[in-house]
Structures are given as C-alpha cells and as structure tokens.
C-alpha cells in the first residue's frame, strides 16, 4: 500500500509475536496457549508476506527470474505454514480432548506426569 513503510508491518508482526509468547507463558488453559501459538504463527506469516512484497533497492539489479523467486518464496512459506498449522490444530485439539477424557482436568500446571 502507498506510503506504508516495511517497518510498520514488521513492528506489528513483532508485537503480535511477543503477545503470543507472553500468552504462552502466562496462561494456564491449554486451549488459549494453543491459540497463542497460532497467533505467533500468524505474526510470522505477516513477516513473510511483508518481505515478499517489500524488497531492498538492490533487488532491482537482479534478473527477472531471481526477482520472481524472491517474491514468491514468502508466499510459499505462508501456504506451508498454514497447512502445518491446520494439521497441528487437528492433532493438538485431539490431544487436549484425549487428556480431558482421561483426567477430567486440563489445567496445564497440573499435567505434570512426565516430570519423572
């Protein structure tokens, strides 16, 4: 978009990523933690797309094939991140449901059986 610097997108993505990280640390509900992970993934997606759109001036010296590759690579990564996120959500929510069925409790601080 006209007049928006790259830094604006990156700063927003950074903020979302930080919020996601803090959320993973401070929340105890595994579903919300999961949602924070999704937030972090999306922050990274935004970064990928911002860098796919914005190029340094020296990219103008590259040939057309190189430029095409560099502007597509970000989008491809986003597609793969989305696919992986979908698979992750399906399995992760399945695990949460299975834990709930087993323990009748999904508080993340009390799921400490693996402590040894």
């Amino acid at each position: 978009m006209q007049g928006v610097p790259l830094f604006a997108y990156i700063a927003l993505a950074l903020f979302m990523f930080t919020v996601g990280t803090v959320g993973v640390i401070i929340r105890r509900n595994p579903i919300v933690i999961f949602m924070c992970v999704e937030l972090m993934l999306n922050a990274v997606n935004l970064t990928f797309l911002a860098f796919a759109r914005y190029m340094p001036a020296m990219a103008l010296q590259h040939n057309a094939a190189q430029r095409a590759q560099s502007q597509m690579a970000g989008q491809m990564m986003v597609i793969f991140v989305m696919a992986v996120a979908a698979a992750e959500v399906a399995v992760g929510l399945g695990i949460i449901m299975a834990i709930y069925r087993l323990r009748e409790n999904i508080d993340i601080d009390e799921l400490n059986l693996l402590k040894g």
Partner: peptide, 29 residues
C-alpha cells in the same frame, strides 16, 4: 512473563532498527 516478553520485544526491536534500512520498498510485481 510480561517482563520477559517486553525484554524480548526490546531486543528484537533494537536489532530491527539496524537491519531494516530505508531502502526497502514495495517492489514486487
């Protein structure tokens, strides 16, 4: 957790200041 998050934010922001110069522009087709 909030303190740690803010610390991470500040660290990455400091790095970004250096890494992203003015020469980035919307240059894709």
């Amino acid at each position: 957790g909030v303190v740690m998050g803010l610390g991470m934010l500040a660290l990455i922001l400091a790095q970004l200041q250096v890494a992203i110069g003015k020469d980035f522009g919307p240059r894709s087709e």
